[in-house]
Write a protein that binds this DNA or RNA. Structure first.
Length: 712
DNA sequence: GTTCTAGAAC
DNA sequence: GTTCTAGAAC
């Protein structure tokens, strides 16, 4: 790596610090190797992945190593990602009167970096396999392109292989005494709209506010007008994506039609070829299996579409599948192929998909992130189905040792299971749109059952449905035999120790309440001792602000009846009280609505409250609160766990008691927007989504007065 | 219910 | 290295 030439440079030849900027797989190391192979200038490559005695080091080690090399009269390449300004700033400071600082930006398409990262083995950064896509996506989301104002003398932008070759040539021919002109080279007009699209994609902070907000709205909508705007903003990316689409067969992507603004109502599943990449499954055999299982499925399902997606241009598997599908005369409206990044089918490929399959490995755990997160951030994607296919790669866990009998069987099961899962989603979606008020949690079970999840987790063919947060290790026990009365009036599964103090109003026993859980009970019994905290006291109820509001407006209407701990204790004799609580809550909601007509309220109870004493939540639906921090907070107000006051009153009237949905599965369900029902990988991402989501509320909430709006 | 924090995930 | 989750203690 080092060149043995410690002679100090002459005055006219400055030393160089060349900071490479690019995602993993963008070709930084290759760039350095090419230059150093033919350059007559002494170079040292400072690589963070190997600086710690061949292992990964840190930024400080890189800095001191670079300083040492410069002192020895050598120019340095800083070979680390350097994707944001802060990461670069310390290295820029290495510059001085005799040391110029350059940036070479390898700004190549994300999917190229991903496909290179996925393919590489034994790379110094150890970023291989499926993990690579997640990491590259994440890094690119934070990317800030370098600017001269950061302190660079010169910046070269490379947006394709030709640019890279030209930059290699520039630095290779740079002798010890040569200098390069200062300035910015190769950057496309940064003010052009075209860049705005890129900036949006990269979440650049300095996007003009009006453009950023418009782009945000695009992510939530697929209306024709907005799609048109999207095209004008992201033209470069769209062209890039379009250029790689094969045009020689009837099964090519229909994205052009989508981009015209014709909305596609047809439920669409986009799926990658399972096991043919890292798991090295034979392509010919895989193509047969894909086409056969697709054929079976397209005969069964109405207008649903299946789209086989591959990242790489000229993919062998795509050509094989297209040829075989054509032979079998499979309807090209129902099944076609698409070249592009499966995590950006709409934003970069213009293809509307609501369900996406992710080829997973056995490490997959619920939680979301990486590829999963990237998929969820796409407009219109409501479900991700994780599929684990057979592994033929001896370097990966659970290899099948070239047993294609077993492999084919497993791959066929994987696709069948995937398509069945998709059918199940389509079916339950259709049920929902027909006005079923069934809770989404029970649909998760249907989905779970329909996918053979009783198979062992370790099975290579196990399909993982991550939807609704069903943990893989828990599914097997949950899917055994008939379901228990999930959703029915069930007992308290979280009951704690019993003691005489925990006797309910009806004489039954309930869970022990911790001391922290008694605060509301104390207020209900002695509101006069808490005058500073309460808003209203009457004979039956006390009203107070929730101490940790989960929305702009969030108050509690407390029942004052001793022994009425929670909804589980409510019986017909409490009907008048329930109505009174509802009426009081409604009055407060109306009061708030007079002050702010944009608010929307929902009134209801938690199936199993954490705090003792029956209390009605009156909560505005912005959920804009620093106290809303975790999955339980969100799901306790936005799944069936939350029982609308109007429904509780109906149930008690008709059945003598309220329906409780007491199940940890509800509180652990994936995070879905309460308006558009899109899924989000974590709380921060959900919160940023709900600040911009303007979708109408689901129909079920608009019925029966469940939502309280300002008068029109 | 919250806070704290280890460690998983990225 | 930073972000995020989830379990324990209160």
């Amino acid at each position: 790596m080092d060149i043995d030439n410690p002679s100090k440079p002459k005055a006219e030849g400055k030393l160089l610090v060349v900071i490479l900027v690019g995602a993993p797989g963008s070709g930084k190391s290759t760039f350095c190797e090419h230059v150093m192979r033919s350059s007559t200038r002494p170079w040292v490559r400072i690589c963070q992945d190997t600086i710690g005695n061949g292992k990964a080091g840190n930024k400080t080690q890189c800095l001191s190593s670079a300083a040492r090399a410069l002192k020895d009269g050598k120019s340095v390449f800083i070979d680390r990602c350097n994707l944001d300004r802060e990461q670069r700033s310390e290295f820029v400071k290495l510059g001085g009167p005799q040391i110029d600082v350059h940036a070479v930006v390898l700004d190549l398409p994300a999917r190229l970096c991903i496909s290179r990262s996925v393919k590489r083995t034994g790379h110094e950064g150890n970023l291989q396999g499926g993990k690579a896509a997640a990491v590259v996506n994440r890094m690119l989301q934070k990317k800030e392109l370098p600017k001269i104002s950061e302190g660079f003398n010169r910046i070269m932008f490379c947006q394709n292989e030709n640019d890279v070759q030209s930059a290699i040539s520039t630095y290779s021919t740079l002798g010890p005494l040569d200098n390069l002109p200062d300035g910015c080279f190769g950057q496309k007009n940064p003010d052009a709209k075209i860049q705005v699209g890129i900036m949006k994609f990269l979440k650049k902070v300095d996007v003009p506010v009006n453009v950023a907000s418009r782009e945000n709205s695009i992510r939530e909508s697929v209306s024709p007008q907005i799609v048109e705007k999207k095209n004008s903003c992201c033209r470069e990316e769209e062209e890039e994506a379009c250029s790689s689409i094969p045009v020689n067969a009837g099964f090519e992507s229909k994205e052009a039609k989508d981009l015209d603004g014709t909305p596609h109502d047809a439920p669409t599943l986009a799926f990658p070829s399972i096991s043919t990449s890292d798991f090295q499954f034979n392509h010919e055999k895989a193509a047969d299996i894909i086409v056969e299982t697709v054929e079976e499925f397209t005969n069964k399902i109405g207008n649903a579409r299946l789209v086989l997606v591959d990242l790489t241009h000229g993919s062998k598997i795509l050509s094989l599948v297209r040829a075989k599908a054509a032979q079998k005369n499979i309807d090209s409206q129902k099944f076609f192929t698409h070249v592009g990044d499966i995590t950006h089918l709409y934003s970069k490929g213009g293809l509307h998909c609501n369900v996406i399959a992710n080829a997973a490995n056995w490490r997959l755990k619920p939680g979301g992130g990486g590829v999963n997160a990237a998929i969820f951030s796409e407009a219109g994607v409501t479900h991700v189905i994780h599929v684990l296919g057979p592994n033929m790669n001896p370097q990966r866990a659970n290899c099948l040792n070239n047993d294609y009998n077993e492999g084919c069987k497993i791959l066929r099961e994987a696709y069948t299971s995937l398509f069945d899962g998709f059918a199940s989603i389509v079916w339950t979606g259709a049920e929902q749109s027909k006005g079923s008020s069934e809770d989404i949690g029970s649909k998760a079970l249907e989905l779970c059952q329909s996918n053979g999840c009783t198979r062992k987790h370790s099975s290579n063919s196990d399909q993982k449905i991550k939807r609704d947060g069903i943990h893989a290790s828990e599914r097997s026990k949950r899917c055994k035999g008939p379901q228990d009365d999930f959703g029915a009036n069930s007992t308290n599964s979280r009951a704690g120790k019993l003691s005489p103090e925990n006797r309910n109003i009806d004489g039954s026993m309930s869970k022990a309440w911790g001391s922290w859980a008694q605060a509301l009970h104390r207020i209900a019994i002695h509101p006069e001792r808490h005058e500073d905290d309460v808003l209203e006291i009457s004979e039956d109820v006390v009203v107070l602000n929730d101490l940790y509001p989960k929305a702009q407006r969030h108050l509690l209407v407390l029942a004052r009846t001793e022994g009425l701990d929670s909804l589980a204790n409510v019986r017909k004799e409490h009907l008048q009280l329930l109505k009174k609580m509802h009426a009081v809550g409604l009055l407060w909601a109306e009061k708030f609505l007079r002050a702010d007509g944009s608010l929307v309220f929902r009134l209801g109870y938690h199936s199993v409250p954490s705090m003792r004493q029956l209390h009605l939540h009156v909560i505005s639906q912005d959920f804009d609160s620093k106290h809303s921090k975790n999955k339980k907070h969100w799901n306790s107000f936005n799944t069936g766990f939350f029982r609308d006051s109007v429904d509780v009153i109906d149930e008690v009237t008709n059945h003598g008691k309220a329906t409780l949905k007491d199940d940890d599965r509800l509180l652990n369900m994936e995070l879905r927007c309460h308006r558009c029902r899109s899924a989000h990988p974590n709380i921060p991402r959900l919160k940023s989504h709900i600040t911009i989501c303007q979708a109408p509320f689901p129909a079920v909430l608009l019925e029966n007065g469940r939502l309280v709006h300002a008068p029109q």
